[in-house]
Simulated assay, not measured.
Amino acid sequence: MVNTKWEDCPIDKYCVWTDANYVTNFVSLAVGVGSHDGPHRNSVSSLFNFRNASVYFYKGANYSGEVKIVPPPTTANHKNWANLWGTGWNDIIRSSKPSK
């Protein structure tokens, strides 16, 4: 496994990992992804929003299905979603996009 941390997510991007607690197969994104493919297809287990705006994560491809809005980091939520297990969002995210 690759040892990473939420701080590895670049400022002004949002990031997803295939394992909980920001480990393995890390990708940083600045634009929407209509279909998370490759190692991130239905396998996102942690995410972090380092943007100044919210990011929308969808259970369906092409921004469809149930949506989870992840706000920008604050003191209270700076770790955002380190472990999606038990939240109903583990290994099920199919698309994502930042707000404005």
Rank of each mutant, 00 (worst) to 15 (best):
F26V: 03
D8A: 05
T87W: 01
S43R: 13
N80C: 09
S99W: 09
T18D: 09
P73Q: 06
S64L: 03
G65H: 01
F57H: 04
N80M: 04
V70K: 03
E66F: 07
K68Y: 13
K13S: 13
H78N: 14
K79A: 10
W17V: 01
G65F: 00
K100N: 08
I92Y: 08
V31E: 14
K97I: 03
T75V: 15
S45Y: 03
K97P: 02
P71M: 04
S43T: 14
S64T: 15
W85V: 14
V31I: 09
V16Y: 07
H40K: 07
T75S: 14
F26M: 08
N21W: 13
V55F: 05
I93R: 00
C15Y: 07
K13N: 13
G88P: 02
S46F: 02
E7Y: 09
G34P: 04
W85A: 15
Y14V: 00
V16H: 03
C9E: 10
P39E: 11
S64F: 04
P73R: 08
G38F: 06
G32I: 03
F48Q: 14
K79Y: 14
I93C: 02
P98K: 02
V31C: 07
V31P: 06
G65M: 03
M1S: 12
S95I: 00
G32D: 02
T24P: 08
W81S: 10
G38S: 06
S54Q: 11
S46A: 00
F48S: 15
K97H: 07
L84G: 01
V16Q: 00
W17G: 01
C15M: 05
G38T: 02
K59W: 01
W17E: 00
D37H: 08
N52M: 13
E66K: 13
N90S: 04
S45I: 04
S95C: 00
S95T: 00
A53R: 10
T87H: 00
Y56M: 10
G38E: 04
I69K: 12
R94Y: 06
H40F: 12
